[in-house]
Design a protein around this nucleic acid. Structure first.
Lengths: 142, 142
DNA sequence: AAACTACATTATAATTATTCTAAACTATTG
DNA sequence: CAATAGTTTAGAATAATTATAATGTAGTTT
């Protein structure tokens, strides 16, 4: 359970002012056992249900994007009409359960190192993301 | 250069009626040397510029989704406000150039086989997609 | 601590991507 | 060629996200 002061320091170190709203959002996002995968809408819903005072949807968007830009959150590549974010900012990959539309972290140790033999000239690799789509192991699968 | 008859046969084999609109879209998508990465909007623009007769945007959506559902197109997972599609339906991976927002096919031989040691129980793996984000190789990179 | 300034928050409007609707149209089958 | 099931269409509807511009607040200066 992180303390408020820790969030204040963290935000300051990122060059973000520790406002009331941002601290609340930190609590919701980072006071968890497991990493958290969410859409802006998920987050807004949690906030509006848990918290007495409301936070404007625009602020939720602003905050999530500020956190992402500063590397405090990670955006995940799945094809979806919404954007997914992840509180786990370490290099890791994902399973995507097509039955339930759920994202599941994939331990880095569970995938053998990915070796890219050829790169685009003049470019450096910023990230390598693997998305493993899974579905229930039945017949008549599409 | 594929002939109209080939598209007609292909569509029939997929259980899709070969309509005038679908055949035009086939020409735009599949009469190319290289595989083609596009958004619906890209495609709609090409159609409206190249073709005399217009195709309704709804039809472009319908067609692309029909093609995708039948496995004649592939949808690519990148984080974006739009969906990207690919005329290359074989198993392959992508580079995403963050400078230009361009998708580039990654030859399967250019990535060593990806070994997943642990899977989700009761689920089968439908696909493994790797997205390698690259950007220009300068200092002061974010 | 008052005043200042740059950054944040807010409600709302605007925009963008996509899906829905229901009427008109057309490919296929008998 | 008539019937019908699948398609196309324009436009409305929805959903996610971004822009706007006024108000508020954190951090700094005096």
């Amino acid at each position: 359970m992180l303390k408020n002061n820790e969030f204040i320091d963290k935000l300051r170190s990122l060059g973000l002012r520790p406002t009331k709203q941002r601290l609340k959002i930190c609590e919701v996002l980072f006071n968890r056992e497991k990493t958290f995968h969410f859409t802006i809408n998920d987050l807004a819903k949690i906030i509006s249900e848990k918290l007495k005072e409301k936070i404007s949807l625009a602020t939720v968007y602003n905050t999530v994007h500020a956190f992402k830009d500063k590397g405090y959150l990670k955006e995940i590549s799945i094809n979806s009409d919404k954007s997914y974010f992840d509180t786990n900012i370490t290099n890791h990959h994902h399973f995507f359960d097509e039955d339930t539309n759920q994202l599941i972290d994939c331990d880095n140790d569970d995938i053998e190192k990915i070796n890219i033999k050829k790169n685009i000239t003049g470019k450096k690799i910023n990230s390598i993301e693997v998305l493993i789509k899974v579905a229930s192991d039945n017949q008549n699968q599409n």
